[in-house]
Design a binder for these strands. Structure first.
Lengths: 231, 231
DNA sequence: CGCGGCTTTGATGTTCATCAAGTAAAGTGG
DNA sequence: CCACTTTACTTGATGAACATCAAAGCCGCG
């Protein structure tokens, strides 16, 4: 038994406790056997909307964006996801093709499990099913909630929100490389690129943040929080 | 066996085929036994955000809105749901308290099942679990999709979208009583009440629709579709 | 019958998108 | 490796879309 786990080390994987805590050793082994781990470089597309869903895909490491393509040059970013956020899975059991695209904002690793195996496990193991349901509910709740939060705000409030999001939720520090372009920020908060830049420059002039290309330093967090809440 | 179903007629319920098709007779009976059916009048609140989740609630009949309260006078409507849309359930397995409020837009009937019983059924019956997962995925997909669709449009496009939504999806006729106030339309499309009224008056003047209080008649559907898509 | 909430229209103002133009950075092929 | 092209970034000027403010009529309800 233990040897089988060692082959792919799912049992050691941090995800086990979160995602697979109700799987038996045998079940875990069969999943490990079918599982593939795949690395992606920053910028690469992991899932393309419209392609058939035949795998269950989750993020093990890295940072990704979940988005919809509008046309050749424009997209709309729905959500940014870190490991365990589970968002790439929202439509996995409901459709034959993906509804959203996913691409890597940073070098990332995804685990890929055959969808039919996953469905079998769910059918055979109700406790595991309940775990999956809970995870999915949390994911959809948080996507909808953060989306509503952002979009209720005005331009300045949205920029503040995003800066605080990266600082507080993703990097846990005041100084970080922002993993998205100005254009992607615009696609995330549904504003124009020009206005994103304008407001960020404004924040820079007001000594609220410091900008060095992609490197952002939050100088006055209280003010940023204030702008975020006032928006 | 048959007698037990007759008591609460879950077995005959149209929902059975959709929601409970994988439940055994015994399981169905235990659910029926615990189930309560509750009618609500137009305008009544069915679920209040922040209250504890201890039931599994679904819409059997009627029309409801799913919304978040902003303050005492304002709300934001996330989605409108008809029977089988299942939306009131998005967070039911992930939280201890409701994230959204739900109220009746028309006289409605909801079925209420004890949440622990529901969880037991899921744990014991994986096929049922998979059904639930699929339903939830469809629900969250459609909420997110329609939200993005609407909000990409300009004011006129959003109004056209909503009018077409009620005509095509809900009432399946060109002439209907709109079940929401002007203010609620505004909350649904995230615009001001005044502008909702302004654009609807504009549509009236342009002979695209006819307005008689809450009674709307779509006179020129092609034009409305055009405005919706152009938005 | 009068009060509060919903509806309607008009006048005014703000916010944000669009257009334009230029610099910097990052790939790309000879 | 360097010219070349493309993509990202930045700032300013202008205009359009939408919010806000104001005022009045309407309707239901206590």
């Amino acid at each position: 038994m233990e040897i089988e786990f060692a082959k792919c080390n799912c049992a050691d994987c941090m995800l086990k406790s979160l995602l697979y805590k109700h799987l038996s050793n045998d079940e875990m082994a069969s999943m490990c056997y079918s599982k593939a781990e795949k690395p992606y470089r920053k910028g690469e597309v992991i899932i393309e909307e419209g392609t058939p869903i035949d795998n269950f895909v989750y993020l093990k490491e890295g940072l990704v964006k979940l988005f919809k393509r509008i046309d050749n040059t424009k997209s709309q970013i729905i959500s940014i996801a870190k490991p365990f956020d589970f968002v790439s899975l929202l439509s996995v059991f409901s459709n034959t093709t993906y509804n959203f695209s996913v691409s890597a904002l940073e070098d990332s690793t995804v685990c890929i499990v055959d969808l039919n195996l996953m469905k079998d496990l769910i059918r055979k193991n109700g406790s595991f099913a309940l775990d999956i349901i809970e995870k999915m509910n949390v994911a959809s709740d948080s996507i909808i909630n953060s989306y509503l939060d952002r979009n209720r705000k005005n331009l300045r409030g949205r920029i503040a929100y995003i800066l605080l999001y990266f600082s507080d939720e993703i990097y846990k520090t005041e100084k970080f490389e922002i993993p998205v372009s100005r254009k992607e920020i615009a696609e995330l908060i549904e504003m124009t690129t020009e206005n994103v830049i304008r407001v960020m420059s404004e924040f820079r002039k007001d000594k609220i943040i410091q900008i060095n290309g992609k490197e952002i330093t939050i100088l006055n967090k209280e003010m940023l929080v204030k702008i975020c809440n006032a928006g």
